[in-house]
């Protein structure tokens, strides 16, 4: 769906993006991570042509994005920028309605859609629609930014740390909700995040960049199990094996039939949490609510 081939953009000061090959299949979410200044934002801006590449090709939905009218292209791509970028002179409702208005939707349809997307990001339309951006908290503003990007139902979304200003607990929940929703709607998403945990939890694939180059692009479990080099391993963290366990649930691994004492864990528990429970209890097996037991050996074999 999104396909970058040999895309290069050099900034006058150096840095930028070099010979980037990256493709995100339709309906999938690719999480873009890497140290600050490695070119994540630049990559997103290349996709909607806020930045023109020096070389390379960009295809979106099979069509050559570089041959399309950029204005037309952008109306079909939802974009949430790092700093929010709400229009301070328009109420929340009008902000969200920006692209529908550009596309000439009628008032009733626009209004219904505004309510829908505000609800989607967890903001009560009745409470927020007529407020001004400056009357919202940073986290609320970011959610409005996401709602605004979703308003015209674009097939492709570019999200640049969309929930950076939301508190960690709420952020995890919100991102999980929004992402599962985007998945359900079969949106193709390029998501920038600073947080490895988030990237592996939310991405169907993870792309790690460094100094404008793509270092590794793989499924989260694959990348955690086989980091391409020392830099990737270090970036993923010394606890990457634990992080990886967080991607699997009890139901994903074979279970032992034996009966074990202690409080049972539901099948949906991640192996990471199950291992933590074993450590806490000092045991080599925990009972599972749905029957059977999970053994330490099963956890170890999952790698």
């Amino acid at each position: 769906m999104i396909e970058l081939r040999g895309v290069t953009k050099a900034w006058p000061g150096g840095a930028g993006v070099q010979a980037l090959d990256l493709s995100v299949p339709e309906g999938e979410c690719c999480a873009l991570i890497g140290p600050s200044g490695c070119g994540k934002t630049t990559t997103l801006r290349l996709v909607n042509r806020l930045v023109e590449p020096d070389a390379g090709s960009i295809r979106i939905g099979g069509a050559d994005a570089l041959k399309q009218d950029p204005v037309h292209l952008r109306r079909g791509i939802g974009y949430v920028i790092q700093e929010g970028g709400l229009f301070p002179h328009r109420r929340i409702g009008a902000n969200v309605a920006t692209v529908p208005a550009l596309l000439g939707w009628n008032a009733a349809r626009t209004r219904a859609r505004v309510e829908e997307v505000l609800t989607l990001v967890g903001l009560d339309p009745a409470r927020y629609r007529d407020r001004w951006p400056h009357q919202l908290s940073g986290g609320e503003r970011q959610r409005v930014g996401v709602a605004r990007a979703l308003a015209a139902d674009p097939p492709v979304l570019l999200l640049d740390e969309p929930f950076g200003a939301v508190d960690p607990l709420r952020r995890a929940q919100l991102q999980a909700e929004v992402l599962s929703l985007l998945k359900h709607l079969r949106k193709t998403v390029l998501l920038v995040t600073h947080d490895v945990q988030e990237a592996v939890r939310l991405g169907d694939s993870v792309a790690l960049m460094r100094g404008g180059r793509l270092v590794q692009h793989a499924a989260p479990a694959e990348m955690l199990a086989h980091p391409a080099d020392g830099f990737v391993a270090e970036f993923l963290g010394a606890d990457r094996a634990l992080t990886r366990l967080g991607l699997f649930r009890i139901r994903d691994v074979p279970r032992d039939a034996a009966t074990v004492a202690g409080e049972a864990l539901p099948e949906a528990t991640t192996l990471r949490d199950a291992l933590s429970a074993m450590l806490e209890r000092g045991v080599r097996a925990v009972p599972v609510t749905e029957g059977g037991a999970l053994t330490l050996e099963a956890v170890l074999r999952s790698r």
Binding site: R75, I81, F87, T98, V99, L102
Partner: peptide
């Protein structure tokens, strides 16, 4: 950021 958002939305 506001100008960028305007461009980004087409």
């Amino acid at each position: 950021a506001v100008r960028e958002a305007a461009d980004g939305m087409g």
